[in-house]
Design a protein around this nucleic acid. Structure first.
Lengths: 223, 223
DNA sequence: ATATAATGCATACGCTCGCTTCAATCAATG
DNA sequence: CATTGATTGAAGCGAGCGTATGCATTATAT
C-alpha cells in the first residue's frame, strides 16, 4: 500500500467514525484498526488527532460549497436581470448536501453527517472548523435580499436560519422520522424529499411579516 | 453540605458541562472540580459516569413533557369538540423548550441544550436516552391528524419533522444566526422568537400537498 | 452521650489515551 | 547490487481517565 493510499483510507475511516460518534469518543486506535493500518500512521501522515480532523474537513468542504455556488450562479444566469426566484436560491443551498447525504455509495454521504457533527460537537477543535464555514452563507443572503425586497433584512436572516434548520435536522435525524411515523414516510425518494423541504421553506418565506401584511412577497417567492 | 445538596450541585454542573461539550470530552474530574466536591462523590452518589448522565436526564425530562401536555390539554379544552387549531398544537410543542432555553437564571435553560446534545452525541449512552423521548411526540401527532384531515398522514409526519427541526436548530445554533446576521436579529425577545417559529411552521403546514392543491387546510391552520 | 449510619476526602489501581521512538521493510535510483 | 529515503510495525512513554478503597468527619438516633 502506498503512502497516498494509506492517507486516503485513514481519512475515509476517520470521516465515517467521526460522523457516527463524537470526536473525543473515537480513539486513534479504533480508527487505525478499522482502517487496517498501523497506529503510528496517523501521526506520521497527519501529525496529530486534531490535524486529522482538520484534514477530513478540508478534503471535501471546498467541493460542497463549490457545488452550491455553481447552482446559484446557474440560477442567476437563468434569471438574467431579474431577481433569482427564491425557490432556486434555496435549491442551490439545500440540494447539494441532501443529495450528498443520500448517495450511499460515496464518501460524500458520511461527510455531510460529519459536518453536522462538527456543528454540534462542542469541542474547541470543532468550533474552529465551524467558523470556517460561516462566510459561505452570505453568498446566498445577498440574492435573497434582492428577491424579497419587501422583507426586512432581519426577517430574511430569521427565515434563512429556519431553512438551514430544516436541512441540518433532516440530515442528522431522518432516522427519527422513520421511527415516529412507523415507516410511513418514504425516505428513499431524494428528489421528493428535497422538494418537500423547499416547499416548506418557501411557504415559510412567503408568510406576511409579523404585525403587518406584505403580500407582495408571494409573487417573488413563486418566481 | 448535606448529601442531597451535593447531588444537586453535581447534577447542575454535569448538566451544564454536558450541554456545552460532548459526553466523552467531559471528565469526572472536571465536573467535580467545577462543582467543588470530591472526585469520589460522583461514584458514591450515582454509581458511575453513565448513571450520572441518566440522572441528569431523568431529573427534568418528565417536567418538560408534562408542561407540553398541559398546554396541549388546555388547547384541547378550549377547542371543545372542534379540532385543535394547528397553531396551538405547535405552540404546546415548541414553546416550553424554547422558553426553558431562554430563561437564563434557571437550570432549565441548560437542560434544553443538554437534550439537544443528547440527540446528536452519537455515543451509545446518548442513544439510549434518546429512545426514551420518542413516544411523547405521538401525543401531538393525533390531534394534528384531526386538525388537518385533508393532509395525508405521511405528509403530516414530514411537516412535523420539519417543525421539530426549527426547534432543535434554534436551540442549538442561535449563536450562528447572530454571527451570520451581524447582530441584526433580535435574539432576546423570546415571545417574538416563538411567534416567528410558529408562523414559519404554520405556513409550512398550510402549503398545498405536493402534486395537488388542498386549500381547505388553510382554514384549519389559521384556527 | 454514645453508637451507628451517612457522607466527605485523599489516594491509588488498572486501563486507555495520544503520541513518540526506533528498528524493520519497501521502492526507487545510481 | 548497494544505497538512500519513505513508510510501516511493534513497543512503550507519560498523562489522564473512570473507578475502588480506606479512613476521617459529620449527622442521626437511641
Amino acid at each position: 500500500m502506498s503512502g497516498a493510499e494509506t492517507k486516503e483510507i485513514i481519512l475515509d475511516t476517520a470521516e465515517r467514525l467521526f460522523a457516527e460518534r463524537s470526536f473525543a469518543s473515537v480513539s486513534l486506535r479504533e480508527i487505525t484498526a478499522a482502517a487496517g493500518v498501523n497506529l503510528a500512521a496517523v501521526n506520521y501522515h497527519f501529525g496529530s488527532k486534531d490535524a486529522l480532523l482538520l484534514a477530513v474537513f478540508r478534503r471535501r468542504a471546498t467541493d460542497l460549497n463549490r457545488e452550491r455556488i455553481t447552482l446559484l450562479k446557474e440560477a442567476e444566469a437563468r434569471a438574467g436581470d431579474h431577481p433569482v426566484p427564491l425557490r432556486e436560491i434555496l435549491a442551490a443551498l439545500l440540494s447539494p448536501p441532501i443529495r450528498w447525504t443520500r448517495q450511499r455509495t460515496s464518501g460524500l454521504s458520511v461527510f455531510i453527517q460529519f459536518m453536522a457533527r462538527v456543528r454540534t460537537d462542542g469541542t474547541p477543535e470543532m468550533r474552529k472548523l465551524m467558523d470556517k464555514d460561516v462566510g459561505h452563507i452570505h453568498r446566498f443572503v445577498v440574492p435573497t435580499f434582492r428577491t424579497l425586497p419587501h422583507l426586512p433584512k432581519d426577517e430574511i436572516y430569521w427565515r434563512l436560519h429556519f431553512t438551514l434548520a430544516l436541512m441540518h435536522y433532516t440530515i442528522t435525524d431522518l432516522g427519527r422520522l422513520e421511527a415516529i411515523s412507523g415507516g410511513l414516510c418514504d425516505l428513499d425518494d431524494t428528489d421528493a424529499l428535497i422538494e418537500r423541504m423547499i416547499d416548506f421553506a418557501v411557504a415559510g418565506f412567503g408568510q406576511p411579516v409579523q404585525g403587518g401584511a406584505a403580500l407582495e412577497v408571494l409573487e417573488a417567492v413563486s418566481g
